[in-house]
Design a binder for these strands. Structure first.
Lengths: 131, 131
DNA sequence: TCGACATATTCAATTTTGCGAATATGACAA
DNA sequence: TTGTCATATTCGCAAAATTGAATATGTCGA
């Protein structure tokens, strides 16, 4: 209705996606989809921490999730949201191209060609657990 | 460089413009310019409070200011920033058209046709001072 | 059913931020 | 130079957000 009311609605969206970790998640997912272990590997953050942000983004209808066996895949609900983030990226002067990180994680989605199940690289012992 | 570093740069911009009052300021200014007393009248907030946000937006190079006598006029530095806000507005399902509030304030910029100086309506006694 | 693995949730704490009150600065008229 | 008006700045606190640690849930193979 009023200008400030509108501003509050807009603020709600921006606030939801603003935390760096969430922006990184959105950029990592891009127009595709990603499981939690994949994001874990790409971002170098702990699983529980990433999951928290995913939950917040899901509850705000920014992300949609799809379960496949043990894995849960997330994708961006509205393409315009990605445009928004990339637009902000241009303003910030950063490269917002989808990160080229093929098969960091060994979930079936990342390495479909491999037969059988192999545990996700992100949680294997040799993976560096920073933060 | 890294995905998270980029995300932090983007977050800096979004964080700066996210507070509702600042979004309202940006929408109120639009592609034009506005003095503080005008924003005061449109937003219905106290002068000191608005000035704080203006200062933050100026220090982040979101806004540019221009002094004309006692009045200081603000304008959006980068048109893409306004596009960003309006894009977010579309996502939020709100109308982000420039608010139609002609001459709320009686600064010379708002009422150029009027001869002589008249104090800004926003701080006159009959103006409702909420917040 | 048991164990391993992927993911979700809860809890607490540090840090940030929104926002008000009070006050300062700067310009112009008389 | 004194007063008025427009705007800027500083200070402080209550509220909220980010994030870590610990733990729970759910799925699947053996």
């Amino acid at each position: 209705m009023t200008l400030l009311t509108n501003a509050e609605d807009i603020a709600a969206i921006l606030k939801t996606i603003s935390p760096p970790t969430r922006l990184a998640i959105l950029l990592a997912i891009g127009e595709g989809e990603a499981c939690v272990c994949h994001l874990e590997a790409v971002l170098g953050k702990r699983q529980a921490y990433i999951s928290q942000h995913l939950m917040a983004l899901r509850q705000s209808n920014v992300l949609l999730d799809r379960r496949d066996g043990r894995f849960v895949y997330y994708r961006i609900a509205e393409p315009a949201l990605l445009d928004l983030v990339r637009g902000a990226g241009r303003l910030a002067g950063v490269d917002t191209a989808a990160p080229v990180v093929p098969a960091v994680c060994e979930c079936p989605h990342c390495s479909e060609q491999k037969p059988g199940y192999r545990k996700c690289a992100a949680t294997s012992d040799n993976a560096t657990q920073n933060q």
